[in-house]
């Protein structure tokens, strides 16, 4: 079972590495969003520092959204998804592996990039650190919930917009706890409760969402 999940992850990672441009594009999008906000709201450091957690978190959410439609679409188009559904393991495990792989190529780089973007907003070092960890812990939830959305909208016209409609409301807790953690540390409160809640939400999503995603995929394959 674990070997199967590992195969799925390794396969998705090696496929992702063959197309590095697709990996970098969402990161550039993240960078651009973060850079554009100061143009809109002015360069006062005090204001920017105040808004940074929210902006960076929403940016991470939107960048994740960019790479989600392709989570299953390519495999659906060339018949690989069908073969996965016929593998002697539950499809939920394959979806789980794919969600993990998605997080490794999307959430992890976003987390690594976020402290650098935080510098643009003049965040203090401890806030940068909390920002990094909050995105690191929170993005698995986005990959998990995103897997459901991607499964439900697979092969539909306008699936990108639909995906965001379906997925964004469900991601509100991650956004609140994630940006809240950064906010907390800047106002001098301990970010720990936020981290616990965020970790709980992420764990729940990444464990349960793939099964819902698998149910959605089975419908799409019928």
């Amino acid at each position: 079972m674990f070997a199967f999940i590992a195969h799925v992850i390794r396969r998705d990672l090696s496929l992702a590495l063959r197309r590095p441009a697709d990996l970098v594009a969402p990161l550039c999008f993240f960078l651009i969003i973060a850079t554009f906000f100061p143009f809109g709201i002015g360069p006062e450091p005090e204001l920017l520092r105040r808004l940074a957690p929210g902006i960076l978190w929403v940016g991470a959410l939107l960048s994740t959204l960019l790479s989600l439609p392709r989570m299953f679409a390519d495999d659906f188009a060339d018949g690989t998804l069908e073969q996965m559904a016929l593998a002697p393991y539950p499809l939920g495990l394959a979806a789980f592996g794919k969600a993990i792989a998605h997080w490794i190529v999307s959430g992890l780089p976003l987390a690594l990039l976020s402290p650098i973007l935080g510098l643009q907003f003049d965040l203090p070092p401890d806030a940068l650190c909390v920002l990094f960890f909050s995105i690191l812990i929170g993005t698995p939830a986005l990959s998990g919930i995103g897997a459901i959305g991607a499964g439900l909208t697979l092969g539909l016209r306008g699936s990108g917009v639909l995906l965001s409609l379906v997925m964004l409301p469900l991601c509100i807790p991650a956004l609140i706890f994630g940006s809240g953690a950064v906010d907390a540390v800047m106002t001098g409160i301990s970010p720990r409760p936020y981290f616990f809640l965020l970790a709980a939400f992420s764990t729940g999503s990444i464990v349960f969402a793939p099964w819902a995603a698998a149910a959605a995929l089975k419908i799409s394959l019928e």
């Binding site: 090696s14 060339d78 018949g79 069908e82 593998a87 393991y89």
Partner: peptide, 22 residues
């Protein structure tokens, strides 16, 4: 559909598909 990946080589494709089928 052939269920093969354009980005992978035939050898990789074969290895991957057999592994997925345990």
């Amino acid at each position: 559909q052939n269920a093969i990946k354009e980005d992978l080589t035939p050898l990789e494709n074969l290895m991957v598909s057999t592994r997925l089928h345990d």
